[in-house]
Design a protein around this nucleic acid. Sequence first.
DNA 1: AATGAATGAGTGTTCATTCAT
DNA 2: CATGAATGAACACTCATTCAT
Lengths: 190, 190, 190, 190
Amino acid sequence: MNLEKKKALKRQTILKAATACFENRSYDEVTLDEVATEAGVGKGTVYLYFRSKEDLFLQLAVEGVDEMVAQVKELTQMTALPFVERFERIILALAGFFMRRHGFIRLMNQAMSEQLNEGFCRHREQMRNAMMTFIGQGVKEGALRRDCDVAELEMMLIGPLVFRARNQGHSHPVSPEVLSRLIWSAIKHD
Amino acid sequence: MNLEKKKALKRQTILKAATACFENRSYDEVTLDEVATEAGVGKGTVYLYFRSKEDLFLQLAVEGVDEMVAQVKELTQMTALPFVERFERIILALAGFFMRRHGFIRLMNQAMSEQLNEGFCRHREQMRNAMMTFIGQGVKEGALRRDCDVAELEMMLIGPLVFRARNQGHSHPVSPEVLSRLIWSAIKHD
Amino acid sequence: MNLEKKKALKRQTILKAATACFENRSYDEVTLDEVATEAGVGKGTVYLYFRSKEDLFLQLAVEGVDEMVAQVKELTQMTALPFVERFERIILALAGFFMRRHGFIRLMNQAMSEQLNEGFCRHREQMRNAMMTFIGQGVKEGALRRDCDVAELEMMLIGPLVFRARNQGHSHPVSPEVLSRLIWSAIKHD
Amino acid sequence: MNLEKKKALKRQTILKAATACFENRSYDEVTLDEVATEAGVGKGTVYLYFRSKEDLFLQLAVEGVDEMVAQVKELTQMTALPFVERFERIILALAGFFMRRHGFIRLMNQAMSEQLNEGFCRHREQMRNAMMTFIGQGVKEGALRRDCDVAELEMMLIGPLVFRARNQGHSHPVSPEVLSRLIWSAIKHD
DNA sequence: AATGAATGAGTGTTCATTCAT
DNA sequence: CATGAATGAACACTCATTCAT
C-alpha cells in the first residue's frame, strides 16, 4: 500500500505540473522537458506513468471531466430541493469548475489526433449525458420550458458557461449569481 | 489589371486551401507543405503571398471577423425596424456565419502563441465592440433587460452561438429560429 | 556599337551593385534579389549577364585581380626609375587597391566551390606571377636581398598588405609610406 | 567522474569532426548533418553540446585563440633571454600554430555574420593584446625600431605569418627560420 | 524505479534559378 | 530584351521517445 500510495502521489505530482504548464500555452508549445522539470522528475519518469504526451494530456482531461460529471450527478440526485435550486447549485459548481480550469477549456477546443479525440469524446459524452439527464428531469418536473428539446436547453446552459470561462477568465467574469439568473430566464418554464 | 486579378485569385486559392486544411486539424498539425499541395502551388509560392504561417492563419481570421463585423454593424443601423427584429436578423446572420465557419471557430478558440493571439485580439475586439454597441442600443431602447450590464448580455448572446457552431456543427444544429427565441428569452426586458 | 555599349554599361551597373552588396557581407548573406534591386534591374536580368551567382562573383574577382595585375606590370616596366622607387610606387598602388577593396579581400579568403575556386586561382596566379617577376627583377638588379628566394620575399610583401586591408580597413590603417618603408627594410639588399 | 569524462570526450569528438569538416569548406557550406555524421553521432546530440552552429564554430575559434594567447604570454615573460631570442621562439611557435590550423586561419579571415564576428573579435583582441604587449616590450628594451608604433610592427609580424599559413599551407611553406629572419629585418632596431 | 543522454524524423523558411509573358 | 512570379531543394533547429546505466 505504501508503494501504491507513493506511485499515485508521484502521478499526481506530474499531473499537477502538467496542468500548470498547459495553463497558458497550447498543446504543442508545452514540452515534456518542461513538465518533467516542473514536476521535479526526470523526463524518462514521465513515461513510467503515462504512455505518451497525448496520454498525459488525455488523463488531464479525463480527470477534469470526471470531476465535473460527478458533481453534476450528485446535484441531480438532490430531488428534495426545488429544481430551480438544484439548477442554481449546478450552475455555481460548473461556473467555478470551468473558471478554475479555464486554461484547460481552451485546450479542449484544440483539434487533436484521432485517437486522442476519441478518448476525449468518451468523457465529453459522459458530461453531456449527465447534463441531459438533469435537464430532462427539469422538463419532466415542469420547471423548464417544453417548447424546445433538451439539446437546445443544454446549448443555453453550457454555451454561456464556456464563453465566460474562455473570454472572461482573466479579468472580470460575470458573477455566478447573475449568470445563473440569466440562464434561468432562457430555459425556465413560464 | 490582368496581373492584379491573377495575383488576387491565387491569393484566394491559397486561402481556400488553407481553410480546408485547418478545417479538421489544429494550427500546429497543419504543415505549409500540405497547404501548398492542397492549393496546387509550390511551398515557396505561399511565402510570396503571406509572410509566414502565422500570417496566413491571421489573414484567415481577419477575413472572417471583418465579414462578421460588417454584417453586425449594418444590421445595427437599421433602426427603422423594431429592436427584436434587428436582434433576430443579427442572430440569424451570426448563426449562419458561425456555422459556415465552424472549423474556424474552433481554431479561434484554441490556445495559440502570444503573438498570434495578439493579432486575433485586435479583430476580436472589433467584433466585440460591434456587438456591445448593438446590445447597448437595445438597452437604451428599453428592449433589453436593465438588471445586468452589456458584457453579461453579450455572454448570453455569443456563448450559445459559439457552442452551437462548435458542438453541433457536424450533426443537427439547433434551428436558428429556436436559437433566437431562446436567447431572446434570456436577455429581453420583461 | 550602341547596343554593345548599352550591354556593357548594364553589365557594369550590375557589377557595381554587386560590389556594394558584397562590401560588408559574406557570399552567402548576399542574395541575388538584393543585387538586382541595388542595380535597379529585374532578377532575371542578372542571369542575362552572368551565368550564376558564382559567375557574378567570379567576374568581380577577375575584374579586381586584372586591375591589380595591370598596375603591377605597368610599374614593373618603368625600369628607368631606380628599383626602390618602382617598389614604393607598387606598394602605394597595391595598398590603395587593397584598401579600396578590403571588403573584397575578405571574400576572396572564403572557401568556395571547386569550380569557383579554380576560376579564382587562375587569376590569383596571374597576380602572383606579376609580383614574382617584379621581385625577380629587384633581385637581379641587386636591390633585393639574395639570401632568400622570391616566394619568401613575396610573403613579406603581400602579407602585410593583406593584413592591413583586412584588419585595419575600417579604422586607422598604417600609412602607405610607413608600410612601404617597413617592407623595404625586410627585403632590401644590405 | 566517469560521466563527466565521457561528456568531455564526446564534446572533443564533435569538435574534432567539426574541424575536419571546416578544413576545406566555408562556414556556410558545412552542414550540421555532416558534422554529426562525421562525429558518428545524431544531429540532435550536437545540440546537447553546442547551442547552435554558430556556437560550435565559435568554440572552435576560442579554443584555438586561447592556445595561441597562452603561448605568446608565456614566451613574453621569459625576460631572461635576449629579446631577439624570445622573438624567434614566438615566431616559431606562431608559425607552427598557424600552419597546424591553416584551415582555421582561412575561416577566421572569411566574412561572417555580425554576431559571429563579434564573438571572434573578443578573442582576436586577446591575441592582439598579447602581441602588442610583447612588441611594446621589445621597443622599450631598445630591440625594436622606434620610428613606428606597435600597430605597424604588429602588421609586419602577423601579416607574413597569416599569408604563409593561408597561401603556402598546402605546398612548400617558407621555413620558420627564414620567416623569422625576414620579419626581424623589418622590425629590428638598427 | 529513475534518469537524462542520444536520436532523427519533421517543420518553417530562404533563395538560386527558370520561364511564361 | 526584361521581368518577377513560381519553384523546390536544402538547412538549422526542436522535441517526443527510447534505453543503457
